[in-house]
Amino acid sequence: MTKKVAIIGGGIAGMEAASVLSRMDIEVLLIEKRQQLGGHVGEWDHLFPNFRPASEITRSLLNALQNNNIKICANTVVTGIARKAGLFEVKTNQNQNFKVDGILLATGFDLFDAHKKEEYGYGIYENVITSADLEKKLKGGNVLTTASGCVPKRIAMIHCVGSRDEKAGYFHCSRVCCITAVKQAIEIRQKLPNVEIFCFYMDLRMYGKGFEEIYREAQEKWGIQFVRGRLSEAGENIDGGLQIKSEDTLSGRPLKMIVDMIVLMVGMVPAESTSQMAKMLGIHLSGDGFIAHDDVHFGSNITNVPGIFTAGTITSPMTISDTIADARSAALKICEYIA
């Protein structure tokens, strides 16, 4: 008899895991709360480190889902999961009732709500946007302009917004924002060669393959400037210019600067659904609010509840490469479990 797995979350982790499992002759239910699969990546324009279009990723993942073993339930939210005779009974808001052998949680992350850092002026000043907003603008293909329609002359990219910030309630590093800032800065410069770009960072974490290279490219080829200092606050001038305050910690002096636009590199925080799901299933969370693994080294994909597995950013911020790898390893762990 074919075994059945429910994957909750149709972002890239859920999609990749679904295709791997389906190829191993396991029946997969891919449950996605939205109409479209692809999650956050579906809303991104281009990806680091090689500037490839995000749509390539989602398209190739979607193609791999063309398999009879996969049933996609879009616009579906899981309302309850109960354990019955070694099986899981999954109930949804569409009044469906599935019996499955294992569950893979791949519900991902939420973006940090930049309104919470009021001192940065998001939602108060028109020309303060988030990295996600910028990505939408880039995807739209129009020329990047300020709210009043002018071409910006100077842009500040602010790292660590909602990451590594006890005051915002999140200690952890979101891992992707530093490299995203570099990527987006280069993209802006490619489109607007005269714009000055300043990245305000606390530490630059260029740890991944190819990251350091594009950081260097950003400096050498694109003239992007890096200021080691955390933004304390932003204010608005009468003419709509934004005044930012930071310390240039390397020269040891406070720094003031008028910019036309601020891009807040919002971090990855645990999804609202993660804690609800954890509560419903009795799964442990770690201190940062993501799902915990009992063993840091060997425990990836495994939760404290047998039969329930994780893939992707439900456990920690990850890059796309890491997410794909994590999804494959999750598929392997599920196979071992239900075999």
Partner: peptide, 9 residues
């Protein structure tokens, strides 16, 4: 209040 610009505005 300088850290809550919405109030100032």
């Amino acid at each position: 209040t300088h850290l809550t610009p919405a109030i100032k505005k």
